[in-house]
């Protein structure tokens, strides 16, 4: 295990814009070699952060999508008993070599990789409550033992671990203490403008201004149940571009509103508020 050279600093990439707070958090995680836990509203780019770090530092990205049925063990390795039983019954392959039936999970793969990698553990809160606790030791020591073969898998280079959470479950304190935490704020208008520019280079400036204005007006509209977020704005602008829309105004005829608002009640309340030309806003 070699400590990261202190000169390695993350500053965002061409397509992923950051600000000081996020950079500080990523750099803390890099320097202290701790997992980085990222939370934030859906659509603020939590998952993309891992890709950006991998890209900026030139490392390979391994992704572990956590589901409600995922167990911590799945991330380390899977012992394919069924295959081995099957092989022993039908005589295919060498069943005496148990290693043939051990398959590494994403965490195991990251540890045994010959170079430093970025490991994304996506939506850690989806799994069972005990899931993070089961990973404590492995993430701390960056090593585990395969009980079937008594082999130890230890990280040659501590992977950069990025963990995202949508806050569906609270994470245990012991787990949180080991992580560097960052809460991604919703981007302000200026940063959003730059984000839009990155995703839609050469977009008509007037359209971009109007789209952003409408977007923030909609977000400021307090009656919405699910406020639109960055990824919805990007999608919406893509649709507008593809359809050649050039003029936008926040009224009942707003084109492709469905790309921004995903709940029926929201569409109804927006139509009500702006449809009759009566604004509830001051």
């Amino acid at each position: 295990m070699t400590p990261a050279p202190p000169s390695v600093r993350f500053r965002g990439t061409d397509s992923y814009l950051t600000h000081e707070g996020l950079q500080a958090a990523v750099n803390c995680a890099l320097t202290l070699q701790r997992p980085l836990l990222v939370k934030g509203e859906p659509g603020t780019g939590k998952t993309l952060l891992a890709e950006a770090i991998a890209q900026a530092l030139g490392h390979k990205l391994l992704t572990w999508h956590v589901k409600s049925t995922t167990r911590a063990q799945d991330g380390l390795y899977v012992y394919d008993t069924v295959q081995r039983l099957y092989d022993s019954r039908f005589g295919d392959g060498d069943v005496r070599d148990i290693r043939r039936y051990i398959r590494m999970g994403p965490l195991g793969e990251a540890f045994s990789a010959p170079e430093r990698v970025v490991l994304l553990i996506d939506e850690v809160d989806k799994a069972d409550l005990e899931f993070p606790n089961d990973l404590l030791h492995e993430l701390d020591r960056m090593r585990f033992r395969v009980t079937e073969t008594n082999d130890e898998v230890a990280a040659k280079h501590r992977p950069i671990v990025v963990i995202t959470s949508n806050n569906e479950k609270e994470l245990p304190d012991a787990f949180l203490r080991r992580c560097v935490f960052h809460f991604i704020d919703f981007p302000d208008a200026e940063l959003m403008r730059r984000i839009v520019d990155v995703h839609h280079p050469g977009l008509d400036a007037a359209l971009a201004d109007q789209a952003l204005k409408v977007f923030y007006e909609l977000r400021g509209f307090t009656r919405l149940r699910k406020r639109p977020s960055t990824s919805e704005l990007i999608d919406w602008i893509a649709v507008l571009k593809a359809q050649g829309v050039s003029d936008l105004k926040l009224d009942e005829n707003l084109p492709f509103l469905g790309a921004l608002l995903k709940k029926e009640q929201d569409l109804v309340s927006v139509a009500e508020a702006f449809g009759r030309g009566r604004r509830t806003r001051a």
């Binding site: 000081e20 500080a24 958090a25 803390c28 949180l176 992580c179 560097v180 935490f181 960052h182 809460f183």
Partner: peptide, 12 residues
């Protein structure tokens, strides 16, 4: 401020 926040705070 940013470094301390990242390391000392564990929840929003």
């Amino acid at each position: 401020y940013h470094v301390a926040r990242a390391l000392l705070v564990h929840s929003e």
